[in-house]
């Protein structure tokens, strides 16, 4: 289906605008004159099978919306996502179930993920039944047991009988990962999967997710605001600011040598566990603005310590650096 040159996942100019209610009547106003919340604004990314892509940014930068578009919980205003060279919009129209089998999501809050009135057995059996996996209920139950055992949840019989409120956040998040991995998906979106969990169990959940992904050759998009954690697990990192990707590259290139002023500010403000590392934070003024009709220039220009006249005129294009590393900044020259 896909030859060597087409990447496994192509996010092609995805845009998601929500209409912004500013209290006026919009009936007679054209699309251009209305005010829009540009949650995701022209994002293009590619990734290969089995890779881990980290998406980082502050709250409100559109990283979760992008994740929801990828699993089609939201449909984009424009643009498309290609999976193995095929449009997901088309895949969804042709066979919804086949698409859902290939793309899965793990949500942030494990306490909200499950129906509170069902037992874990019911919760785990439902997708298997819906998608016709396994010949009989006995076989499906055995699959659940096996998956729970492999995920380090025992005694499995005890867990299967429990209700979500009887389990800890860490256990529930494991079950959420197990459930999303049942179909051996090609792509899994992990939307802040550990930010609600305790520090001491985070590492376990992350390792479990990555082990399962490696075993099934699943690509993982890891959405997080924790830069240090993302550095540990992802191959590439995309930094988002106000709905746009401002910097993308191999993890080590981005973290060790950030080029975009926003990425530099973000990383310089990250506290490290090593008390000897003197932090010299770069200056940043103001608060993150809302993405209501930003622009026309670089969205970061009002807060940027490097901003010049050219930044306010038009949104800067990509500046390509080595190893596929690129930044969108008009103050950086190509090497």
């Amino acid at each position: 289906m896909s030859d060597k040159n087409t990447p496994f996942l192509t996010i092609d100019h995805i845009t998601k605008w929500y209409p912004h209610n500013d209290g006026r009547i919009h009936l007679f106003r054209s699309r251009e004159k209305r005010s829009w919340v540009k949650a995701v604004d022209d994002v293009s990314l590619t990734m290969n099978r089995g890779e881990v892509l980290g998406i980082i940014g502050e709250s409100g930068c559109g990283k979760s919306t992008l994740g929801r578009i990828l699993v089609r919980l939201e449909s984009p205003t424009s643009g498309d996502v290609l999976l193995g060279g095929r449009s997901t919009a088309q895949m969804l129209r042709e066979d919804r179930k086949a698409f859902r089998k290939r793309v899965q999501i793990v949500f942030q809050n494990p306490f909200d993920t499950f129906t509170p009135r069902d037992t874990i057995q019911k919760i785990l059996m439902r997708p298997l039944r819906n998608y016709g996996i396994g010949a009989s209920d006995e076989e499906r139950l055995a699959m659940c047991r096996e998956a729970l055992e492999a995920g380090g949840l025992h005694p499995t019989d005890e867990i299967l009988k429990r209700y979500p409120h009887e389990l800890s956040g860490g256990q529930l998040q494991r079950i959420s990962i197990i459930r999303s991995m049942f179909f051996k998906p090609d792509l899994i979106i992990a939307d802040e999967p550990v930010s609600m969990l305790d520090v001491s169990v985070r590492a376990d959940i992350i390792n479990m997710l990555l082990d399962l992904a490696k075993k099934n050759n699943t690509a993982v998009i890891f959405i997080s605001h924790d830069i240090a954690l993302t550095r540990y697990i992802s191959d590439h990192i995309a930094v988002m600011y106000l709905g746009r990707v401002v910097e993308y590259g191999r993890t080590d290139d981005v973290i060790a040598g950030p080029r975009h002023p926003y990425t530099r500010v973000l990383i310089s403000h990250c506290a490290d566990v090593d008390p000897d590392q003197a932090r010299d934070s770069l200056p940043i003024t103001g608060e993150p603005p809302t993405p209501i009709n930003p622009g026309p220039g670089c969205y970061f220009a009002p807060r940027c310590f490097m901003a010049c006249e050219g930044c306010r005129a038009a949104y800067p294009g990509r500046v390509e650096l080595e190893n596929g590393h690129y930044v969108c900044c008009s103050c950086i020259r190509e090497e």
Partner: peptide, 23 residues
């Protein structure tokens, strides 16, 4: 020690993150 080794660092070598087992 367990807490420290389960905590990712921004610089330096990327060691395997280890959680503390149990409750």
């Amino acid at each position: 020690q367990g807490l420290m080794s389960s905590f990712p660092s921004l610089k330096g070598e990327k060691k395997q993150l280890r959680a503390i087992p149990g409750f």
